[in-house]
Simulated assay, not measured.
Amino acid sequence: MVDMGGLDNLIANTAYLQARKTSEGDSRELQRRRRGLMLPGPQSCAEIRRALPRDFHGLCEQQPIGRRLFRDFLATVPPYQEAVAFLEEAQGWELAEEGPDKDSTLRGLVAACAAAPAPERPHPFLSPALATRCQAATSDEERAGLVALAKAEAMAFLQDQPFRDFLASPFYDKFLQWKVFEMRPVSDSYFTEFRVLGKGGFGEVCAVQVRNTGKMYACKKLDKKRLKKKNGEKMALSEKEILERISSPFIVSLAYAFESKSHLCLVMSLMNGGDLKFHIYSVGTRGLPMSRVVFYSAQMTCGVLHLHSLGIVYRDMKPENVLLDDLGNCRLSDLGLAVQIQDGKPITQR
């Protein structure tokens, strides 16, 4: 007797794995679809050019496309690229493990700030007063404080003339074209749906593939009737709004959001490594080695700290909500219970 349930599951798994394989390759069909992905012309950007606030933080830090194009623009101007190179080296120093190499990098950073790249041409992003203080620094504690000041001056420098030049460049025109492209309506016909990855109280999560690009995502489908019955509409909208604000490698990211007649859909990062509960209880010997505990704890802490920096409280930390990717890195997921803290107002809701 044929096990129809098992057969259906086998077919679903095969289709899903084949879709993942296709998305990683470059089939002729995908090539044809990608050629149809044309950015709108510059003439269609006039309205968004007027309406979009010219805010450095919003354009060049929060938005991945803006951040990428701003960096590409800075790379075309040597004095601007000099500031970027310093910030990258300073970030590398901050993230390095404690030890002689980190101390050596710190001294190199301060020495670079103290020494002009050429006679009569000081660093464009540093004030002469700070360069003089770097020359006189003697302790690592003093050097660390000076690097922090130099980072602040470098960021202030990039937000001034370089940012104005970026707004007048073709790189910003390209950014506007991408923003107009992002505003095109998205519906379920934009995706091919594959197997169900999990189920919850308000719906299910399934694997989907963007038809035009072949890229795989996880789609959280929230049933409108269940949301209304359980008064979950506010929670669903809150999760969408919070996901829109987040930009962290340690939290699942929102790629698309749309609604059908029956569902609210949040299309997010696809995490193929399973959840942490599965790895703790179902893979090999029960439990995790201490090295992995430290690794995952550090990544989860980075995700929580990012949320706290935005005034958001997660409120749902558990192994089931920590998902792993193909490389073994973890991300926090399911922000349905997360809340935004309002200044001076306590949170009293459940």
Rank of each mutant, 00 (worst) to 15 (best):
S44V: 09
S44E: 08
S44M: 09
C45D: 07
C45H: 06
A46G: 11
A46L: 12
E47N: 09
E47P: 06
E47L: 07
I48Q: 04
I48E: 03
R49T: 10
R49I: 05
R49H: 12
R49Q: 14
R49E: 15
R49Y: 13
R49A: 05
R50E: 15
A51I: 14
A51P: 15
L52R: 08
L52V: 15
P53R: 02
P53I: 10
P53Y: 13
P53N: 01
P53H: 05
R54V: 07
R54Q: 15
D55F: 13
D55L: 10
D55Q: 03
D55R: 02
F56T: 02
F56C: 01
H57R: 10
H57F: 10
H57N: 08
H57V: 09
H57E: 09
H57M: 09
G58K: 03
L59D: 04
L59T: 10
L59R: 01
L59E: 06
C60Y: 02
C60R: 00
Q62G: 02
Q62I: 07
Q63K: 03
Q63M: 05
P64E: 02
P64H: 04
I65W: 09
G66M: 00
R67L: 03
R67E: 08
R67C: 01
R67Y: 09
R67H: 06
R68N: 10
R68K: 13
R68T: 14
R68G: 07
L69D: 08
L69Q: 04
L69M: 07
F70G: 00
F70L: 00
R71A: 03
R71E: 14
R71T: 14
R71M: 10
D72Y: 12
D72M: 11
D72W: 15
F73L: 02
F73N: 00
L74N: 04
L74F: 13
A75S: 12
T76S: 03
T76F: 11
